[in-house]
Amino acid sequence: MGRLGRQDVAIPDRPSVGYSLLNMAPKHVVVIIPVFRDYDRARQTVAAILRCSVPSPFSVRVHVVDDGSGDGTAERLSEQFGGRIEIIGLPENLGRSAARNAGATNISADLLLFVDADCEPSDDRFLAAHLLSIREADVSMGVVEGQDDGFWHAYQQAARVRRDRLARRTFVAHFTTQNVMIDARLFNSVGGFDEAFKGYGFEDRDLAIRLARAGARFTIAPGARVIHRDTLDLAQVCRKMGEAGATTSQIFASRYPFEYRTLGYEAIDGQRHPWRGVLAKLLWPVFQPWTQHDAWLQWRLVPFKLRAGIVRIMVAVSYLRGTLRRHR
């Protein structure tokens, strides 16, 4: 990809620190899958990874990081796959940043591939597609697709179109650690994920910006696709956005004001726009019951754009309410 984003976070045409895989000729790939109380989907994802074809001279090892599940997830995965994977157990739930870092610590690897436990590769060419893509770059961004479940599938597709538009202004709109391969030396040089991001959201975009500032080249791997096996519901989506507004958004906004504004979050920050926060408080009692019973999202008699627009407003209100809860 060419130069994207703001000038001080632009992606150079060639890395300044010499991480090009053309020079490194890497051979060892570690796939890192964090999981928290999600055995069934983690099992499907691991099985799909192990089925993937791996071109020579690469070798692949799967690290599953059990983030303090305490429900037998790690034991069941170990029983299912045995020595074909490595289980890294954390004594307590530390969050996604810490879990991903644990999977990448003290290992010998040329490439790190981060995949969420609920993101199943769509076919056995998944790894080969990433490896082909990253030969010309330092970060290979895969594609995340929704499962074909009606409204939420269409909603996520529409969100991807919006991210494509935003990416013309800031490349981080495309970056997600649900499905991304990164040069291991570059990842370690920037310190991995920042574990200050303990709540939901923004840890992936923070990493992307630090990688870019270290001289990384980014590319999209259209053939490296995963299916996001998450059955969404409106209450869950609103809860996560409220959590992001209350916790991690403050760190991201203070560090990267341009990206915070360009990605659209500044406009729905109740501490920056107090009158919008007041409006969110007034609207939430009306919206909240509709988030608990969201069968109406599948009403095909109501145009999709109208349903999607209402959901976007509800999600924005949830985020606004979250920002009002964070410490000033």
Rank of each mutant, 00 (worst) to 15 (best):
T45P: 01
R160Q: 12
P222K: 10
Q298L: 06
Y265D: 06
M241E: 06
D233T: 05
M181R: 00
L50R: 02
P57L: 02
L4M: 14
V302I: 15
G201K: 05
R135F: 15
H273K: 02
A208C: 10
S59F: 07
G309H: 04
F81S: 08
L301C: 12
F193K: 11
H327A: 06
D204Q: 11
D66C: 05
F81C: 10
E92D: 00
V144E: 15
R169Q: 12
R160D: 11
D66F: 03
P303R: 03
Q288F: 11
R239W: 02
K27G: 12
F197I: 08
D66M: 01
Q44M: 07
Y256F: 15
R210Y: 14
G70V: 11
K240V: 02
R169F: 14
E92N: 03
A224S: 14
R135E: 14
C52P: 00
A224L: 05
H28E: 07
G103T: 08
R51G: 06
G89A: 05
P34K: 10
I33Y: 06
P15V: 03
A253G: 12
E120D: 07
L131E: 04
A244G: 05
L297M: 14
D269N: 00
I313P: 00
A104N: 00
A221C: 04
A235H: 13
R328F: 08
R185C: 03
A246S: 15
L77H: 14
R213F: 09
T219P: 02
S56G: 08
R205I: 11
D194L: 01
L282S: 06
N23W: 09
L132Q: 10
F114C: 03
Y319H: 15
T105A: 09
G89I: 01
S249E: 08
G68D: 12
G146N: 03
G264M: 05
P34H: 10
S59A: 14
L112N: 02
A10M: 01
R276A: 06
R261S: 14
D66N: 07
W299A: 01
Q80L: 04
I310K: 10
D233C: 06
L301R: 14
A184R: 07
G242F: 03
I251Q: 13
L22H: 08
T247H: 06
G89S: 07
I107K: 12
E259Y: 00
V31E: 03
D40C: 00
V60D: 07
V286H: 04
G201E: 12
Y155W: 13
F197R: 10
L22E: 13
K281M: 11
R300Q: 09
V315K: 15
V30G: 00
N23D: 11
R307Q: 09
V302K: 02
Y19Q: 02
L306Y: 15
P257N: 09
R210E: 15
I227W: 10
V29Q: 11
G309I: 09
R37K: 06
A212Q: 10
V139K: 11
A208W: 02
A280F: 05
W296D: 02
